[in-house]
Every structure is written in C-alpha cells, then in structure tokens.
C-alpha cells in the first residue's frame, strides 16, 4: 500500500494568459495535484480494486468504486504519484497493458451494475518497453477503445494534466471529455514532434503551438466539451467538478442506453469530418 500524502501547496496556476509552452510546463509541474488528490476531494468511501485478472496489478492506474453524493460510481485514474519513491512505483503515470486491462475490467463491472464511470487522465503516454510490447500494449488500448465506445453506462473523462496520445485516449472514449484549464492532450509529445519535424528537440516551444494541444484549442476544434478553470484553487475546483458530474450524469442516466451509445458514436464520428475534402 502506498501512502498518499500530497506535497502542499499544489501548483494550480492562476494566470489566465499563458502560451502553449507555458501550459505544457504547468501541466507537467512537479507539485500538480494527481488523480488521487481529486478522487479524495470529489468522492467519498472510495474503495480501490487491484489487478487485471490476467497478468498483474499496474500501479500507474488506480481504479475502484466510490460515492458521488449518494450515487455509486466507478472511478478510474492514471496516477503519477507524489515523491520519487511513489512516482517510481507508479511508473510516472505510464501504464502497461495490464493497467488498461484493469481499467476495462472495472468498466465492465460498472456496466453490469449500471454505475456511471469517471476517468481521470494524466499520463505522458502508454509505457513503451519490452514488457509492454510483449503483453500487447497496442492490443490492450485497441480493446479499450472498442469496448468504451459501446459501454452502456455514461462515461466522463477529465484531463487533469498531460494527455499523451493513445495512452490517454484509452480512458477517454467518453460521452464527455473535460479538461482543466492548464492540461494538454495531443497525439505526440512536443519533444517528439520537434525532433521529427525539425530534427531538433529544443524547438519544443514551436511544436507546442503547432500541435494545438491546449484545452482552449481543443475546445475550438470540438474535441472536448468543457474547460474547468483552475484559478480558485484545488478545493473549489473539486466542488465545481462534483456539481458538474452530478448534473451531467443525471442528464445522461435519463437517456436509454441505445440513445446514449448512438450519441457517443456520432460524437466521435463527426470530429474533424469538415476537414476532409472530396473531389
């Protein structure tokens, strides 16, 4: 069991006007709150469950059930951890295939018991290493995408820091994706982009702008549904998230599961379609 004592104070930025690079820096800040910090403040009676029933337990993903003001919900979060020891144990928030399979198992249980699902996303990306490849990182992510898009309960994903490529998407095929004001979501890290594009990893600032990875950019592209402001600090932010979650789940639970799934499918079906030209 890892002790969850956060290092205060948290670095939620108050500044409204930051460029993309500064936002990336803020999203990666050392003392930024992690998934567990939000879970503790938003939910009560959180009970963590471990393991994917296939290979092992990935500590980079925390999953369990909790109460959201009287409503039972399944909570899944990618956890980076605080302090070196915990960060290492949690692999700096980069999950292995068993982590994604653990998340999927919890989602399937949520479907069985009709619980809505909340996912917190905060990862630089799915881990790439020998073990991850051997156990089918690509297949694990693909399965999550396919199962999430047809999960018969409402799912909301909240990006609280970094959202790195497929590793983030594997927990974000949801009815609604919300992002904190200083969180980012992109297909490749800006460092990777800079080194491919200009063969120069130091051009990271330009890459941050090119990738359109900030919450404001993604909102205007229609990829996300809500931006959550950070200026009032962690506690007020959590109160706001709680209120929003209750309202949103209330609305979605009133829909039939067919209607819910059709809306989710159409949402992803339409993203970016305007940019395709037929000739």
């Amino acid at each position: 069991m890892i002790c969850y004592i956060p290092i205060m104070p948290f670095a939620l930025k108050r500044d409204e006007k930051m460029n993309a690079y500064e936002i990336v820096r803020a999203a990666r800040a050392k003392n930024r709150p992690t998934s567990i910090d939000y879970m503790e403040r938003i939910f009560s009676r959180f009970t963590e469950f471990h393991g994917d029933r296939r290979f092992g337990d990935d500590k980079a993903i925390v999953a369990g059930i909790a109460k959201l003001s009287g409503m039972s919900v399944t909570v899944i979060g990618i956890e980076k951890g605080h302090g070196t020891k915990e960060k290492v144990a949690r692999n700096f928030g980069s999950a292995h295939p068993e982590g994604y399979r653990k998340a999927l198992r919890q989602m399937k249980l949520a479907e069985k018991f009709g619980r809505p699902v909340v996912c917190f996303v905060d990862t630089a990306g799915a881990f790439c290493g020998i073990g991850a490849e051997e156990r089918g990182q690509g297949q694990a992510i693909a399965e999550n995408l396919m199962e999430m898009i047809s999960l018969k309960v409402p799912v909301i994903s909240i990006f609280i820091g970094e959202g790195g490529s497929g590793g983030a998407l594997a927990l974000a095929v949801s009815d609604e994706v919300w992002m904190l004001q200083n969180s980012v979501y992109s297909v490749i890290s800006p460092e990777g982009c800079a080194s491919i594009l200009w063969k120069d990893a130091s051009k990271i600032k330009e890459a941050c702008e090119c990738l359109k990875m900030t919450a404001a950019d993604l909102m205007s592209l229609g990829v996300i549904e809500k931006i959550l402001p950070e200026k009032d600090g962690l506690n007020k932010l959590c109160t706001a998230i709680k209120k929003e979650l209750l309202a949103s789940f209330g609305e979605k639970l009133a829909l039939s599961s067919d209607e819910l799934l059709e809306r989710r499918y159409q949402k992803f079906r339409k993203i970016g379609i305007a940019s395709v030209s037929a000739s």
């Binding site: 898009i149 297909v187 990738l211 990829v223």
Partner: peptide, 26 residues
C-alpha cells in the same frame, strides 16, 4: 501510426474506426 500533422484529429480517428469495427462485428 497516427499522422502527427493532423494533431489530435488523427488521434480521434482511432476512436472513430474502433466504433465502426465494433458495430460491424456486433
């Protein structure tokens, strides 16, 4: 893999195609 030049839009194609594969299979 995903086309970096289309940023997040290319990532979203993973979800979109998965949805279509799932419906076809179901």
């Amino acid at each position: 893999g995903a086309r970096m030049q289309e940023g997040i839009m290319s990532l979203m194609q993973m979800a979109k195609t998965s949805g279509a594969v799932k419906r076809h299979g179901d």
